[in-house]
């Protein structure tokens, strides 16, 4: 199976001098095409930074990140932007929407760069995605006029608008109540079932339990991995127990 991301021994520091902090301390990761992965760990363990470095949004101090057969260190700023726009999708904990644009415009934004002639097709696609994620009626709404859960679904639509190969999620359910959170996870599972690779960073054992592979981080290192079978939606309690047991075992 093709490996979409290969990271070898990546090291990253924050700050300088006495305040220098080693946030990633020799991390190596491989993510296969179509995989559904979670990264877990306490605050400050480096999981969000790992996501930023794997997606090329943040540089590294040493090591190597290969994305889609390309060494990100050798790719220029503009090409990195092109990669993010065409091959990656992002969903953040906060909705990260532009306040001046309405829901629909926020969703189509990544697709409109240099592509305005296809505005109609892009909008149709966005509307389909919105229907699929259950917010089909909200396209004309301003972002202040909808709930957090609805905004997060819009965020997923935006991540999907350019048919990315991988979606990165940074605590995508962190700001939602449990019902909304589960609905979002159901959408992610569907997207994954269609073949899109997904990497989620999370605190939540219930979120991690619905993926196929969980990486546990502490102090800038991946200290353990566990594999789970593909989640069918039935044995959630058992899977959660396995994840929490593993967390207790390694002490996070």
């Amino acid at each position: 199976m093709k490996k979409i991301i290969i990271a070898e021994n990546i090291v990253k520091f924050f700050g300088e001098g006495d305040e220098k902090l080693n946030v990633l301390d020799g991390v190596s990761v491989e993510i296969n095409e179509g995989e559904f992965v979670a990264v877990m760990g306490p605050s400050g363990s480096g999981k969000t930074t790992l996501m930023f470095t794997l997606s090329g949004m943040d540089g590294i101090d040493s090591g190597k990140v290969i994305f889609d057969d390309r060494d990100l260190a050798a790719v220029g700023e503009n090409e990195l932007a092109d990669l993010r726009r065409t091959k990656m999708g992002f969903v953040f904990q906060q909705p990260t929407m532009l306040k001046n644009l309405n829901i629909l415009d926020n969703i189509i934004l990544p697709s409109m760069r240099g592509n305005r002639k296809n505005a109609v097709e892009i909008s149709q696609k966005a509307e389909e995605l919105m229907k699929r994620t259950g917010i089909g009626e909200l396209e004309e709404r301003e972002i202040t006029q909808v709930s957090g859960g609805q905004l997060q679904r819009a965020g997923i639509c935006r991540a999907l608008i350019n048919n990315p190969e991988i979606i990165f999620g940074d605590e995508p359910t962190g700001a939602l109540n449990s019902k909304s959170a589960q609905e979002i996870m159901d959408i992610f599972r569907e997207i994954n079932a269609d073949g899109t690779t997904i990497m989620l960073v999370t605190h939540d054992a219930k979120v991690a339990a619905q993926t196929e592979r969980v990486m546990f981080m502490r102090d800038g290192k991946i200290i353990r991995e566990m594999r789970l079978a593909k989640f069918s939606g039935t044995d959630i309690d058992d899977r959660i127990n396995r994840v929490t047991a593993k967390m207790q075992e390694i002490g996070i």
Binding site: E77, A81, D82, L83, R84, R85, L98, L109
Partner: peptide
């Protein structure tokens, strides 16, 4: 935000 979604400098 727009940088994250693939707009260049």
């Amino acid at each position: 935000v727009i940088k994250a979604f693939g707009f260049t400098n």
